[in-house]
């Protein structure tokens, strides 16, 4: 399955990203968006899956602002 994921970051003027990936995003996972470390806080299905593709929307929060980027 290919996951087409739209990532957005709440609470700031940060760009989102859309990427196709082979692993599903999950709440609690950390991702690097626009060179900033983020944690996924919500994943929702944006469009029903079709064929080999799933369409997801992942909301993230910045970790660096909390000073835990080195973990």
């Amino acid at each position: 399955m290919i996951y087409k994921v739209s990532y957005v970051i709440v609470g700031g003027q940060h760009r989102g990203m859309v990427i196709n990936q082979e692993e599903a995003p999950q709440v609690g996972h950390r991702v690097e968006l626009d060179e900033q470390l983020c944690e996924i806080i919500e994943v929702q299905e944006l469009v029903p899956p079709m064929g080999d593709f799933a369409y997801l929307h992942a909301t993230c929060r910045l970790l660096e602002e909390e000073g835990i980027s080195n973990q």
Partner: peptide, 20 residues
Amino acid sequence: AFKLRIRNLTNALPRGGGDL
């Protein structure tokens, strides 16, 4: 359609959710 739905969702965020 995917991009339009992202726009709808990000517009609903408090601020700075990105855009497409």
